[in-house]
């Protein structure tokens, strides 16, 4: 597993945990009160901020852990060769994942516009954008991981 594969895997796990936490805060309220009264704003802000911070911390931990493991297993030269050297295949896979994720984000934005036009509550609009942004990032990461393992 390459350095960028490990970073992407860690990022996907982190974002899954953050989304699960957000769902645990919001979903239980949905059956108990009108959506206009659901307290989703603070959990959403926490999910975004904590998600960004956690992804940075996870990337650092994975990098340091990988460097130590690679140094012990193959020596310092292997670390120099592996780290920070994003080559043309990494860039190609990165572009592929970002492009596919971008398509999904476009769908989410159009969906949010439709919800606004139809005068749905801001709860639905905000969650459409939040889930759309999360899904686009997750889809992009999954495609990158498949690409690293498979056809590219």
């Amino acid at each position: 597993m390459s350095f960028y594969e490990r970073i992407n895997t860690a990022g996907l796990v982190t974002s899954l945990l953050v989304l699960a936490w957000y769902a645990m805060q919001v979903v239980p309220q949905m059956g108990e009160m009108p959506v206009a009264e659901i307290a989703y704003t603070r959990p959403m802000i926490y999910a975004v901020v904590v998600g960004v911070i956690l992804s940075i911390i996870t990337a650092i931990l994975v990098s340091v852990g990988s460097a130590i493991w690679l140094t012990v297993k193959e020596g310092k030269d292997a670390v120099d060769a592996e780290f920070g050297n994003e080559d043309e295949r990494d860039k190609h896979i990165g572009r592929l994942g970002d492009a596919m994720g971008g398509h999904l984000l476009s769908v989410a934005v159009i969906g949010a516009l439709v919800l606004i036009w139809m005068e749905y509550d801001t709860f639905w609009v905000a969650n459409c954008l939040f889930i759309g942004a999360w899904s686009s990032a997750a889809l992009g990461t999954v495609i990158k991981l498949f690409a690293y393992r498979g056809a590219v």
Partner: peptide, 21 residues
């Protein structure tokens, strides 16, 4: 990989025909 400036994983993918450089 070191001599052509790519990662070992990329050399492996090229060698196995999974990636066209």
């Amino acid at each position: 990989a070191k001599r052509i400036g790519v990662t070992r994983q990329t050399v492996l993918a090229i060698e196995q025909g999974r990636y066209s450089p």
